[in-house]
Design a protein around this nucleic acid. Structure first.
Lengths: 340, 340
DNA sequence: ATAATCAACTTAAACGTTTTAGTAGCTTAT
DNA sequence: ATAAGCTACTAAAACGTTTAAGTTGATTAT
C-alpha cells in the first residue's frame, strides 16, 4: 500500500487538512513546529502526493497534450523540445502523441487526452484532413494548432509560419539562377501549409512571366519516400532543371534518386528544400532550404496555450512567424546548354 | 460543467452503477433495452468518462512513462515509435519524457511520473550517472531499463544490445582493412554501453596483437558536437588512419570536421559509426556502422514492462539483442603510404 | 402455498486529495 | 468582566468513478 495523506496525518497527529497545507506550502495558518513535524514524517515515510486525487478536486491536471504527425522528422522533434521546455518551465507536463500522419490515430489520441483530463491540447494535425469526421469530434478543452491546420471548431489559437512567402522566395531564388522549368514536390492539399507553399511557387512563376506547367506539380507525402519515388518514376521524362521540395525529407529522397540516376546536384539539377532540419547542412551537397524555427514554433504554441489556460490578458489568438531562405550548395546557375 | 456519469444516470433514469457497467461493457447484468437507452443518452450528451476518477478506484492508470535522453537522436525517436506502438496495442498510453542527458531532469521526471501514478516506467538513463543520488530516489513502480543502465534498485527488467560484440566487430573490420592506428570516440564511462564498446575495441586490438595507445581513446558525449570538436582539436596531431565512433552522431560530427580539414573519407581516413540511424545511409560517403534495431528495442522494453505489470508468467527479466555490422562507403583498405 | 432461484437493477462506500467553514483557546481592548 | 480578535488548527463535503453487497419482483420448483 502506498502511503497517503491520511497516514501522514495520523503519524503526525494532525488532520489531513494540515498535511495538505504543508505539502502545498499554504502555511500562513500553520505553526513552524507543526510544519517541521509534518515534513519530518513525510520524509520518513517517503510520501508522494497522488496527483490524480488532487486533480479530482482542483479540476486541473497541469498537463497538456502535444500531438504531432511524425517523430522521425527532425522538424517535429525540435518542435517537441521547444514545447517541452516551456511546459516544464511553467509547471506543466506534456503528454506526447505521435500520429504517423493518420487522422484516425489523431482522433483517438484527442479522445484519450480528454479522458485523461489534460488542461489543453497543442495539435499539429496529420496530413489528410476530413471535415466530415472532424466536425463530429467533441473537443472540450482549449486547443491551439501549430504548423498544420484542422477543421475542429474549438481552436483557440494558431501558430504558423508564412509558408507562402517561404515558397515564393525559394522559387524566386531558382528563377534568379536562370531556371524556368521547375518541378514542385509538395504534400497533401488538405493542408493549408501545402496549399500556401504551392501558391507561393505559382505566384513566383507568374510574377516572372513563366507559364505554369501543371505536370510539374506533384502532390504527395512529406517524407523521403515520396521524393525518391517521384524522381525514380520521372527519370528522363522531365526536362526540369530545378526542384522545389515541400520539405527537406522530400528533398533528401529526391537527391538519393538523382544520385542513383547519375545526375549531379546542383550541376545537372538544382534542389531547394523546406524546414532546414539539421541534416540539411550535413548532406553533400549541403541543401539550400527555407529555414523554419521549429524549436520556437513548439515553444510559442505551448506558451500561447498555457497563457490561454491561465487567462492571461492580452493573449493573442494567432502568431505568424517569418521563414528565411538559406542558400547552400544544392542550387546553382542553370547550365548554358539548358538555357532557352 | 463537464457532463458526468451522474448526469447520464439521471437522464436515463438509472443508477450510476448501471451507467458505469454499460460504459465498461460489463453488461451480463443489464437488459438490452437499458443498454440502448443509456448509450443513447451518452451519445446525446457527449459524455466521456473521467479517467482520473476511474484510476482512483481501480488503482491503475493504464499509462507508462518512457524516459529517453535525446529526442534529436534518430536512434531514440525510432525507439519511441516502437514503444508507442506496443503501448497503444496493449491499451496503454505513453507519457513521454526527454531529459537532454541531464540526470536531475531525469529524476524530476521520475518523480512526476510517480505522482501521476503511472503503472510503470521504461527508462533509458541520461549519460552521467551518480549512484549516490540515484540510491535516494524512491521508485515505487516497476521499472525496466533500455539501452542504458542505471543504479536504481527497483529495476525489474533490462533490454540491451550486445555492445561488446558490436564494437569488437567494428574494430575488427577496420583491422582487417589494414588499420592499426585506430581512434575511438566514445561516450561517458558511467554508462555500461560505453564501457562495453570501449572493451570491444580494446579486445579486438589485443586479439590482433596491436598495442593499445591510450591517447587514441577519447571520452565525450554522444552527439555530433563531440565528434566535430575532437577532430578539430586533433588535426595533424594524430597519425590515426581510422576512427571508431561510439555512435553515428559522433561519426557525423567527425566527418564534418575532416571535410573542413580537407581530408577525404575513406581514402585518407576510415570511419565506423554505431546505431545505424537512417541518415547514416544518406551521407556522402554512406556510413559504415553497427546496426541496432532501435524500433525493436523500444517495442520489447515496453512489452516486457507491460507483461510485468500484468503478471504474465514466464516473463523474462532481461533481453539481449545482437547488433550487426553494416559495411558501406566510409571504410576502405589502408593506403600504401600508411602501411607500416 | 411457500421456498428457492433468477434477472435486473440500486445503494453506498471507497479511492486520496483540497478547501470552506467552523471552533477552541488564548490575548488584548474596553 | 466581557467582547472582540487572533492563532492554529479540524471537520467534512466534494471531485467522478467502480464495485461488493443488497433489493425487488417475477418465475420456477416442491
Amino acid at each position: 500500500m502506498r502511503v497517503t495523506i491520511k497516514d501522514i496525518a495520523k503519524s503526525a497527529n494532525v488532520s489531513t487538512a494540515t498535511v495538505s497545507k504543508v505539502v502545498n506550502n499554504k502555511v500562513d495558518d500553520i505553526s513552524k513546529a507543526t510544519i517541521e513535524k509534518v515534513n519530518k514524517v513525510i520524509k520518513e515515510q517517503n510520501y508522494t502526493p497522488n496527483s490524480l486525487a488532487r486533480s479530482m478536486v482542483t479540476k486541473k491536471t497541469k498537463t497538456v497534450g502535444l500531438i504531432i504527425p511524425d517523430v522521425r522528422n527532425p522538424f517535429f522533434t525540435d518542435l517537441v523540445r521547444g514545447a517541452e521546455d516551456i511546459a516544464v518551465d511553467r509547471g506543466y507536463n506534456l503528454f506526447f502523441c505521435n500520429t504517423d500522419d493518420d487522422l484516425s490515430k489523431e482522433i483517438r489520441y484527442i479522445n484519450t487526452l480528454i479522458e485523461k483530463q489534460v488542461d489543453g491540447i497543442a495539435l499539429a494535425g496529420s496530413a489528410n484532413r476530413n471535415p466530415d469526421i472532424e466536425k463530429d469530434v467533441n473537443i472540450s478543452v482549449p486547443l491551439v494548432t501549430l504548423d498544420r491546420n484542422v477543421y475542429f471548431s474549438k481552436v483557440k489559437g494558431i501558430i504558423e509560419i508564412n509558408n507562402f512567402k517561404g515558397a515564393y522566395e525559394a522559387t524566386t531564388h531558382l528563377i534568379n539562377l536562370g531556371h524556368k522549368d521547375i518541378l514542385i514536390l509538395v504534400g497533401s492539399q488538405d493542408l493549408k501549409i501545402s496549399r500556401d507553399r504551392l501558391r507561393g511557387y505559382k505566384e513566383a512563376l507568374k510574377d516572372n512571366n513563366i507559364i505554369i506547367n501543371e505536370s510539374n506539380i506533384k502532390i504527395g507525402t512529406y517524407d523521403k519516400e515520396f521524393g525518391k519515388k517521384t524522381m525514380d518514376e520521372l527519370k528522363c521524362n522531365s526536362s526540369a532543371t530545378a526542384i522545389f521540395c515541400g520539405n527537406d525529407l522530400i528533398a533528401i529522397g529526391a537527391m538519393k534518386s538523382l544520385k542513383k540516376q547519375g545526375l549531379n546536384v546542383p550541376e545537372d539539377i538544382s534542389i531547394v528544400g523546406f524546414d532546414d532540419i539539421y541534416i540539411a547542412s550535413l548532406l553533400t551537397p549541403a541543401l539550400t532550404t527555407v529555414h523554419q524555427p521549429s524549436y520556437e514554433i513548439g515553444y510559442k504554441a505551448v506558451e500561447l496555450l498555457i497563457n490561454k489556460l491561465e487567462n492571461k490578458n492580452n493573449v493573442s489568438k494567432s502568431i505568424v512567424i517569418e521563414p528565411q531562405l538559406i542558400v547552400r550548395e544544392s542550387t546553382c546557375k542553370i547550365k548554358d546548354k539548358f538555357k532557352i
